[in-house]
Simulated assay, not measured.
Amino acid sequence: MPSPGGSILFAADGAIRPEPQRQRADDGQFYLPRPDRPPASSDRSQGKRTVKYWISAWWPVAFGICVIALESTATFGADHTSGPLRWLWEHIFGQVTNRRWDILHHYIRKSGHFVGYGTMGLLWLRAWWMSLPRAGFLLDATLALLGTALVASADEFHQSFLPNRTGVPSDVLLDCCGAIALQLLVYIFLRIFWPKRLPGLT
């Protein structure tokens, strides 16, 4: 066989021979350069992912679930959050009547649902994006939405057993809307400022 980095010689009679030390240019023979190929191990090394990589991808999701589990306890029921939130509101915006505060408190808590689970959806999206780098944004976002819906359903189911909490399907829908809204904002941002990361929706 020819030496590494050498050439393959095609003779006029169809025979294949290694390149000789000296060859005349007008003897009816020509040379096909040997292609340079990278080592076979290089592609494999690029695909390796360490335990540290997987931890960095998924620990924010685990942390977010722990925060939601803590928030899902009786300590964070409406009867416990009303006082501190009203104190903060009145120090910023002034005093309000009890009736008006009941309405404001309701919308503040629902806004917390929307933003909190919207953030949870982004954590899921990041984790799937890192785990499936060749998948499209639509697949990652769908998996993130499913993860968010699962956590939200478990949250509402748990709250249905607490005396000062209520578990309602409408909150799960609100949580999913928050996840969809923030994922849509991320998609628009990437499409405008980082289009190379979004070759396609699928």
Rank of each mutant, 00 (worst) to 15 (best):
G178P: 01
L104T: 11
W59M: 13
P20V: 04
L88F: 15
Q21Y: 13
P199L: 01
S41Y: 04
S41R: 03
F137Q: 00
S41I: 05
W101C: 05
A74G: 13
G178D: 06
F30R: 12
A69Y: 15
H91S: 15
Q29C: 09
W89L: 11
Y187K: 09
A135H: 07
A179Y: 00
S160E: 03
S131V: 06
W89C: 10
G47D: 12
S131F: 11
V168D: 03
G200W: 02
P2Y: 04
G116R: 03
R134H: 10
G94H: 12
P60R: 13
L132A: 13
R17Y: 14
S3C: 08
H106G: 10
L70R: 11
A69Q: 13
C176W: 03
R22S: 11
A57L: 08
W124T: 00
R24E: 14
T97G: 12
A144E: 05
I8M: 07
P60V: 02
D26L: 05
L190F: 09
P84V: 02
I92K: 10
A149W: 00
S45R: 11
N98C: 04
L185W: 08
P2A: 09
A69F: 15
L88I: 13
E71G: 15
G178A: 08
V168P: 01
H106F: 15
W128E: 01
R126F: 09
A11M: 12
L173M: 12
V51W: 14
F161M: 10
